[in-house]
Computed example of a mutant assay.
Amino acid sequence: MEIGQLEQLLRARFTGFFPEHTPPLEEHPAALAAVPTAAPSPTAWSALVERGALVLPTSRAAGGLGLGRPAAVLIAELMGAAAFPAGAYLDTLLGIDLLERCRPSAARARLIRDVVQGRHRIAVGFRDGTADRGPDTLPRWTDLALAGDRLRFEARFPTVVSADEADTLLLVGDGVAGVLPLAAGDPAVLLEPRSVLGQRRLFDVDVSGASVPRSDLLEFTADPAAVWRDVLGQARLRQAAHLVGLAGGALDAAVGYARNRRQFGKPLGRFQSISFRLAAATARIEAARLLVRDTAVRAEGGEPVAAAAARALAFAAELGRTVTAEALHIHGAFGMTLQSGAQRYFRTAGAESVWLGVVPELRKLVPA
């Protein structure tokens, strides 16, 4: 299916859905960070799954419809345009990518199927928290040992998205050639509410004295570093699409405000200084959109994605911050109030632009 046809299909399916399920403006904290409260109602997640947000991009081998990476980036962009909280969805796709790169087994197949069909929630622990170790480097285990037929381990995974809503934690780290699924309710697991960053509810996950059967480890089919590089590349591509969507949503809000707000007897958008800024933002968004979609199509065709995704995310991260800031300026003082969507786009883009790597580090991954 051509990406233009796929976009029409997904817009028809999701365009009205995301605004309907985006929390009202007044429910968003004015601060950039706050302690997460109780888990939100599962209604929005259930409705999202029923719409096919997980099954559409997932491969047929994993029980999905096989629309692949183009579908995933288009859905992520639509989420951004509506300021829909996408963190749990994007990390779930990351988890599915990890599981798909593990050796076939009954446990793996059952877990993927249950996740894709919405019967099971997962959260992914993949960060170390050490200052010199970013997303490109897998975290270290505090302690890891094989005792008989059981694997014993201790570790700390900071900033795990929506860990309190998960049934299973997928843990990845340096020195383990696979994914360790651990029940979120395991007595060895301690969840500490950390913050709300953008629209991601973050928790620190401490695992102390966990013991699981050696057979629970889902082993990768290739070198762990190569697997993680590819999986992280796919996640960065979806993240770039989400940032493009945030920029597009902020621009739409700014255009609407400039059309309706009148100064000196005419709409704000009639002033050249405003119209030129809006036109420049439109051109940059379209360029980023084409870059992300082209990268997704080429990745679906089998091309390596790590460097291209880093390039796309670096571009989209800068775009997201600058365009949402521009939209905020055009709204004036009203843009900083909780009644304006401009402040939500601005705050969310600021957090999402650094989630999978800061721009200088991303650029180091792109060949000269």
Rank of each mutant, 00 (worst) to 15 (best):
G4M: 03
L10H: 03
F17E: 04
E20P: 01
A30W: 12
S41H: 04
S46I: 09
A47D: 12
V49A: 10
L54S: 09
L54E: 10
T58Y: 05
G64R: 10
G66Q: 08
G66I: 11
R69K: 02
P70E: 05
P70W: 10
A71Q: 06
G87I: 11
T92N: 02
E100S: 02
E100M: 12
C102E: 01
R103W: 02
A106E: 15
A106N: 03
R108F: 01
A109V: 11
A109I: 04
D114H: 12
V115N: 04
V116Y: 00
Q117E: 15
H120P: 00
I122T: 06
R127T: 12
D128N: 13
T137F: 12
R140M: 13
A147C: 01
D149N: 12
R150N: 13
L151P: 04
A155R: 03
T159P: 00
V161A: 07
A163H: 03
L169A: 04
L169H: 04
L170R: 00
A177G: 15
A183N: 09
A184P: 08
A184T: 15
R200T: 02
D204G: 09
S208I: 13
S215I: 03
L217W: 05
E219K: 03
E219W: 10
F220G: 02
P224T: 01
A226H: 04
V231K: 02
R236W: 07
L237D: 10
L237Y: 02
L237K: 06
R238S: 01
Q239A: 15
A241I: 12
G245H: 09
G248V: 05
G249I: 05
L251W: 08
L251R: 13
D252M: 06
A253P: 01
A253G: 12
A253T: 13
V255E: 15
G256D: 14
A258D: 07
L268F: 13
R270F: 14
I274T: 15
L278G: 01
R284G: 01
L290Y: 00
T295Y: 04
A296I: 11
V297F: 06
A299W: 03
G302T: 10
E303F: 09
E303L: 14
A317V: 11
T322Q: 15
T324A: 11
L328V: 11
H329M: 11
I330N: 00
G332Q: 04
F334T: 08
G335K: 03
G335Y: 00
L338K: 07
Q339C: 01
S340F: 09
G341W: 14
G341N: 09
A351G: 08
E352A: 15
W355N: 00
W355F: 13
L356N: 01
G357Q: 05
K364H: 04
